[in-house]
Design a protein around this nucleic acid. Structure first.
Ligand SMILES: [Mn+2]
Ligand SMILES: [Mn+2]
Ligand SMILES: [Zn+2]
Ligand SMILES: [Zn+2]
Lengths: 149, 149
DNA sequence: GCCTGATTGCAACAGGGTTGCATTTGCGGC
DNA sequence: GCCGCAAATGCAACCCTGTTGCAATCAGGC
């Protein structure tokens, strides 16, 4: 878990041979502080509040594109079909275990004890990620769990 | 695996206390013939070709809604964030095993030999589905597999 | 056959994401 | 430090998937 100082982030960009710009640094900083993957809209809001003011919608999309392309960030789809962006280094920490998606409240819970199995593939296929997603109702949403409380 | 005759489909609708209408029968028939889950757009195209002509965009969405609501169909998000619809009866046949998603061509391959593990959850959580998704490059897209051919 | 609520069709809208193009800026070379 | 140029930014306009409102039509219980 790196420190995510401005200098560190700039170094990351240079290492990826991507130009160091204010928008990119601000987006990286924002993503490094985020507790979980953020949508474009959430990033836009947070950036608007921070000093330096708002970032253009399209510029934000293009900054995110550049981060995806150089491998510093990744994106996933949430249940509504909206992209959520997060730093690759943060995502890596969640790659090995399964995740629970609550079908009612949309909340996500790490299932550290459920480890991804090794993929057994037909010849010629190459696996890069194995993702286990468990769907159902979380404690707060299941009748058993606590909704009745 | 049912026969998916028009009469059978109509019976399915009646059993679900959903009115039997031409649009609904046509959509069900289309889904029952599909090799895999279809997007709204794909359904629209196929229906436009079949006899009876095109179906209104919105009507198609609402027909699909009614099929979701009564449990005859289900939908998932594809990698682009677009909904794909399929008959629940067809989906059930794929619930037990993992699927491979090619990151280049978008193709999906059944991994029948990879079986979903039993979910081990914190107390209060209720699992309804466990999905294993393997991502990477398929035979045709991996350098090893056949792109060089 | 009639009646009524459900379904259809059309138009207009919403939100996320993309494209085109002129202006500005990072940064390698001098 | 200054130049030059490709890359990045900002703004406007656009596209695509999915939704909402509303009047006209239809399925199916009576
Ligand atoms: Mn996790
Ligand atoms: Mn399958
Ligand atoms: Zn929940
Ligand atoms: Zn492929």
């Amino acid at each position: 878990m790196p420190e995510f100082t401005p200098d560190f982030l700039a170094a990351q960009l240079r290492a990826a041979s991507v130009k160091v710009t204010r928008p990119r640094l601000r987006v990286l900083a924002c993503l490094s502080r985020a507790a979980s993957a953020l949508t474009h809209g959430e990033l836009e809001e947070r950036l608007a509040e921070g000093e330096g003011g708002g970032l253009d919608r399209v510029t934000l999309y293009r900054v995110l594109d550049s981060l995806l392309e150089c491998g510093l960030a990744e994106r996933t789809l949430d249940a509504r079909g909206v992209y959520r962006f997060l730093l690759s280094s943060i995502r890596a920490a969640h790659a090995a275990h399964a995740h629970f998606h609550c079908q009612r409240c949309g909340g996500i819970t790490c299932l550290e004890q459920m480890v991804a199995p090794v993929a057994t593939l037909p010849t010629g296929f190459v696996a890069r990620q194995v993702e286990i997603e468990v769907r159902g109702l979380c404690v707060n949403c299941s009748p058993v769990g606590g909704a009745a409380r």
